[in-house]
Amino acid sequence: MSTPVLDVRGLTYAYPDGTQALWGVDLHVHRGERVALLGPNGAGKTTFVLHLNGVLGPSSAQGEGRIEISGMPVRRDTLAEIRRRVGIVFQDPDDQLFMPTVRDDVAFGPANLGLRGAQLDERVGEALERVGMTAYASRPPHHLSFGQRRRVAVATVLAMRPEILVLDEPSSNLDPASRRELAEIVAELDVTVLMVTHDLPYALQLCERSVILSGGVIVADGPTRAVLADGELMAAHRLELPFGFDPARRH
């Protein structure tokens, strides 16, 4: 098989206050895959995600293990390239949007990559179009609805042309229409996706493969339908399907 886009081995991490969140995570994701990372609250999902582009790591506290993105190890000296390859959409769009206008915010990443002028405009335009937010380019992000802000957050990351798109709970706090629109956007994308969620129908709709992170380790890995259908496994890790939802049926 080819080099995995994401290759994580034996990842441990304790926050500076001593809370250990990761207890030895192993995960491989190959090019073009869409993988759902499931797990209860506090399982360590966000902690794990923040390691993928070196925002958290041994230097910020204690931890070991290795992460490679398309063969490149995440290290201090590779961070700039790693952060171009890994695009993370944070759980809270308000953490992600900090520039005065939508356009400036989407341009922030590519501008840091050194793009200027027409090239930069093209990147920004393309990213906004992919999420259907072109009409809002000159609005301040904090004046948009929550769903719109999340879409802009996705655009800020797409504008970097990442090799792997990581979404941390993309459907949380969205109303049903925004939730569906975001799913359509993600389904259209032609990149490798790791989607953190506890929205199980969403995982089933968008991802062929699911892994469960619980207690800081990966405890299950398989086709989404099979993982969701394993009632015992699901119950053991506090994952509950919505009432009336049957993963065996096509939805």
Partner: peptide, 10 residues
Amino acid sequence: RLPTRPGVHS
């Protein structure tokens, strides 16, 4: 050194 727990490997 941090302790580890067993998990599944992909």
